[in-house]
């Protein structure tokens, strides 16, 4: 399968933060969710992908091209959404469109009108009067109006109400009916990922933790609940992290089948949310509450 984004052994350090030997790939035709806590390097990675930052070392290629030689070619094919307002506030959406339109050779006014109508966006109101949700819809509209093959979004759903989050996911679902589209977005609202993400990349403290298919996560990971007496040196090895309380234990495993073999009916096995996986992986080992 073709990789649309490829980061290889990328290093980037700032004061008090470091992206360490970071490698990842994003596959064409799929939605990849990028998860991790606050300040672990999600935005930095997205900036590197957009060439807003250059790596200290390592290589970045988008559509198999590098930014040194093909910057404009690459950016023609990307639609982007950031979590803050990146438009001129004193302009209206129509005025903003006129400015951005000229940058893209593939701009499609019909598509722009389609999304404006669908999102019920006001064309002649100043952008600074837009609510957070409208702002996001406006960004998405601009990002989708030039037939971009890759959509890169930094925390697109943060601060949005649940109704609009669903609408937003619907738009992405419809976009993905076309197999040439690729979506990459960071989020810490992990419920966004449950219904749409094909791949999940987990970053923590500037390091790549895992890249997995969402179906693989469903198959491998499980939350296991049971009595503390079941835990001993041997059985503990099966868990990534264990939370113990006076009433029993709860743990995350990445080897669901093995757990079923070992414990059988003695434990309760549940499907973990992505949030569970993030939480337990970050906690590590075992702890007591």
């Amino acid at each position: 399968m073709e990789n649309v984004i490829e980061l290889q052994n990328v290093n980037k350090s700032f004061k008090g933060f470091q992206l360490k030997d970071f490698s990842m790939t994003v596959k064409k035709g799929f939605v990849t969710g990028f998860i991790g806590g606050n300040g672990v390097g999600k935005s930095t990675t997205i900036k590197l992908i957009m060439n807003l930052l250059q790596p200290d070392s390592g290589t970045i290629s988008i559509f198999g091209l590098n930014y040194k030689q093909h910057e404009k070619k690459i950016k023609q094919r990307i639609g982007f959404v950031f979590d803050d307002n990146i438009f001129y506030e004193h302009l209206t959406l129509t005025e903003m469109k006129r400015i951005i339109k000229r940058a893209y050779s593939n701009w499609d006014d019909n598509l722009f009108r389609y999304y404006v109508e669908q999102f019920e966006l006001p064309l002649n109101k100043k952008i600074k009067t837009f609510s957070k949700g409208m702002m996001m819809k406006a960004s998405l509209t601009i990002a989708l109006s030039h037939h971009a093959e890759l959509i890169v979004m930094d925390e697109p759903t943060s601060g949005l109400d649940p109704v609009f989050r669903r609408e937003f996911l619907d738009v992405l679902h419809r976009l993905m009916e076309n197999e040439d589209k690729t979506i990459f977005f960071s989020t810490h609202v992990t419920t966004d990922l449950d219904s749409i993400a094909d791949y999940i990349i987990f970053i923590d403290k500037g390091q790549h933790v895992f890249t997995k298919e969402s179906t693989q996560i469903e198959e491998e990971y499980a939350i296991v609940k049971g009595e503390k007496e079941l835990l001993d040196a041997d059985t503990k090895k099966e868990f990534i992290s264990i939370r113990k309380s006076n009433h029993g234990f709860e743990a995350l495993t990445a080897n669901k089948n093995r757990i079923e073999e070992v414990f059988g009916q003695m434990v309760l096995i549940e499907k973990p949310s992505i949030e569970d996986i993030m939480f337990y992986t970050k906690k590590g080992a075992e702890w007591h509450v």
Partner: peptide, 11 residues
């Protein structure tokens, strides 16, 4: 934020 916009556009 405007620098982010201009640099994300194909320029």
């Amino acid at each position: 934020s405007i620098n982010k916009l201009l640099n994300s556009l194909p320029y």
